[in-house]
């Protein structure tokens, strides 16, 4: 067991080192050649880089040991169970649950509440701001839950992905035209915030697992696309929230 773990760990360590090299090269190159200044804390930089390499290596190992297998076995178990209701309930919970506690989203929601209070959309009290931020977080989490549900339905039915994406983009353009201007920037940002580093592998494995367990679906053509929906629907929902509140 130990030997079987050590070999991939070493090659993965080498990969992580290679993946980090470009960042170090850019930072050192610009610092010495363009800005012509010494690095303020070279030891600290190298220590941090080492930590990043180790962290990336462990993460990739954990990905293969846990996140990928969980997503795929659960997908095939749900497919075997054959209950559409429970599969969709699982899809919604996964999208909603991974988003609602996302630290980046909490930060964006608090910032949005400040903007809204300054713009006079809500009263400038702590209670009002907190309610606004919580409402926004719930909205984004609902949007991601719904996105995964639609994405899973798409895999089951075999709808072509680009029709849904084009429809979504049209929705974004339309909402941008009618939503209050203050909310648009926050809405666009919320799309990028939702897909965290733990959600992406899990959701990808779920999609691929479903596409491989259902007859007539091709994992490459039908398995991907869930992430794309999850970054699209929050934009539409947040602009809608801005219009209602």
């Amino acid at each position: 067991m130990l030997k079987a773990l050590a070999l991939p760990l070493l090659s993965s360590l080498r990969d992580s080192l290679r993946d980090l090299t470009p960042i170090l090269a850019v930072i050192l190159g610009f610092q010495y050649l363009v800005l012509r200044q010494p690095i303020p804390d070279l030891v600290g930089l190298l220590g941090g880089a080492l930590l990043v390499v180790i962290g990336l290596t462990l993460f990739v190992q954990g990905l293969k040991l846990a996140l990928f297998p969980i997503g795929e076995t659960m997908a095939s178990d749900f497919a075997r169970k054959g209950s559409l209701f429970w599969l969709l309930a699982f899809a919604f919970s996964l999208g909603f649950g991974t988003t609602v506690a996302e630290p980046a989203l909490i930060a964006v929601a608090d910032e949005a509440a400040l903007v809204a209070a300054e713009g006079g959309m809500i009263p400038t009290t702590d209670v009002a701001r907190e309610r606004y931020a919580d409402g926004l977080r719930l909205t984004v989490a609902m949007a991601v839950g719904l996105a995964i549900v639609i994405g899973v339905l798409r895999i089951l039915r075999g709808w072509p992905v680009h029709y849904l994406i084009i429809g979504g983009y049209l929705g974004v353009v339309l909402m941008t035209g009618i939503a209050p201007a203050e909310i648009v920037g926050i809405a666009y940002d919320s799309g990028g915030v939702t897909t965290s580093t733990i959600t992406v592998p899990l959701v990808t494995a779920l999609g691929i697992g479903l596409a491989s367990s259902i007859e007539g679906r091709n994992p490459t053509v039908d398995g991907f696309g869930l992430i794309a929906f999850a970054s699209l629907t929050p934009m539409i929902f947040v602009m809608g929230y801005g219009m209602l509140v």
């Binding site: 960042i23 930072i27 180790i54 993460f59 954990g62 040991l65 733990i198």
Partner: peptide
């Protein structure tokens, strides 16, 4: 294996973020 993998994911990601925040982000 799954539990071990989850521990690796959490510890790995924490190291990764700590390394970025302590060294690379401030300089960048």
């Amino acid at each position: 294996r799954v539990v071990l993998g989850l521990v690796l994911v959490v510890v790995g990601l924490a190291c990764f973020i700590q390394g970025l925040q302590s060294a690379l982000f401030p300089l960048g």
